[in-house]
């Protein structure tokens, strides 16, 4: 076990996997990084620092700076994957997924199905997402709901360094396209990471804590918010089942239902806007399959149905907060 943050965990996993498998390549805007700077071509390793050192080790054939075109990045990754490589494409801001949607949902997600399994598309798209950094409406969004809704894609949201390693490694061993969402506010989160080969299966939620009085289901940065809320509740003797989904597709329906069947009360927390969100999806599953266990209507705490504001105060008000989550939990507990 070594202690490192999520940024380092992703960087090291890429390094180790590229050493293991020569078919893995990395491409994206500034993933090499330093071209034109005083430090030289490999000085920076991407604006997020997740691809540092890869160019020096693996060279320009496997670590490729691209033009500023998400359509080209995702399209090239799809083609490379069909041709037998394992591309890891980086979208510096997940918000710009829009221009590459056809490459994603009509091509990548459907190749294996439409060619009757005769081909596969083992591409990983790393999408840097999330609000809370005062980055305004086009650089703050949580677009995982959009890709979760697309059959054929796996959608992964690590919240710990160990999960970042385990799930990135799992993606690089699998045969399907994986949308790997990295929250920009979580890069510095530290934790223990297992040494050596380590894979975390998709579709297995992480039980962050078990309490039994109220269920909280969430993913991404909201896991930490929920932990704060759960601490406050615990001080009043209220136990929380906190579920970190880890992957929204596949979804660990069983973890959610097993908990709700015991608590009868659920708060679903999601950083994206509420309509057609992962939160709404989970609320629907719970209403459909655990109706008889519910003691209170499911409660969703999400962003707002509006663009994410630039002003810090408004952005904070737009986002879920530990206080809002705590209030929601008390609300479902008080429901009669």
């Amino acid at each position: 076990m070594a202690v490192m943050n999520i940024r380092e965990a992703i960087n090291r996993t890429l390094y180790e996997e590229m050493e293991r498998d020569p078919s893995i390549i990395v491409l994206g805007e500034d993933v090499v990084g330093g071209a034109g700077t005083a430090g030289g071509q490999e000085a920076i390793g991407g604006i997020w620092g997740t691809t540092g050192g890869l160019f020096a080790k693996f060279g320009g054939d496997r670590v490729i700076d691209t033009p500023i075109s998400e359509s080209a990045i995702v399209g090239a990754a799809a083609g490379a994957a069909l041709a037998g490589l394992r591309p890891v494409a980086e979208l510096m801001f997940a918000d710009f997924i829009g221009v590459s949607l056809d490459q994603l949902w009509n091509q990548m997600a459907k190749f294996r199905y439409m060619f009757g399994g005769k081909t596969k598309c083992p591409a990983v798209v790393r999408l840097i997402y999330g609000a809370g950094m005062n980055a305004a409406a086009q650089h703050s969004q949580s677009v995982y709901a959009l890709l979760t809704a697309m059959p054929g894609l796996k959608v992964v949201l690590p919240t710990t360094p160990a999960d970042a390693k385990g799930m990135l490694s799992e993606a690089l061993h699998g045969d399907d396209p994986v949308m790997f969402f990295e929250h920009k506010a979580l890069y510095g989160v530290k934790g223990e990471v297992p040494d050596g080969p380590f894979r975390q299966r998709f579709g297995e939620a992480r039980m962050v804590r078990e309490g039994g009085d109220v269920t909280m289901v969430t993913c991404g940065r909201m896991v930490g918010f929920c932990e704060k809320a759960a601490d406050k509740l615990a001080a009043d003797g209220i136990g929380t089942d906190l579920i970190d989904l880890r992957t929204t597709s596949p979804l660990d329906e069983e973890a959610i239902l097993d908990s709700v069947e015991q608590t009868g009360r659920i708060v679903i927390v999601d950083e994206s806007p509420p309509r057609c969100s992962v939160a709404a999806d989970i609320a629907a599953i719970v209403a459909e399959k655990a109706f008889t266990s519910l003691k209170a209507p499911p409660r969703m705490i999400t962003g707002q149905h509006s663009p994410i504001p630039f002003a810090r105060e408004l952005e904070r008000a737009w986002l879920p907060s530990p206080q809002k989550i705590e209030d929601a939990a008390r609300h479902v507990l008080a429901f009669r």
């Binding site: 069983e254 239902l257 459909e288 655990a290 008889t292 266990s293």
Partner: peptide, 15 residues
């Protein structure tokens, strides 16, 4: 079962 893959839920037992 009404759960994923025919898994039986508490609701199924209640029914």
């Amino acid at each position: 079962g009404s759960g994923r893959g025919g898994r039986i839920t508490a609701q199924d037992i209640a029914q």
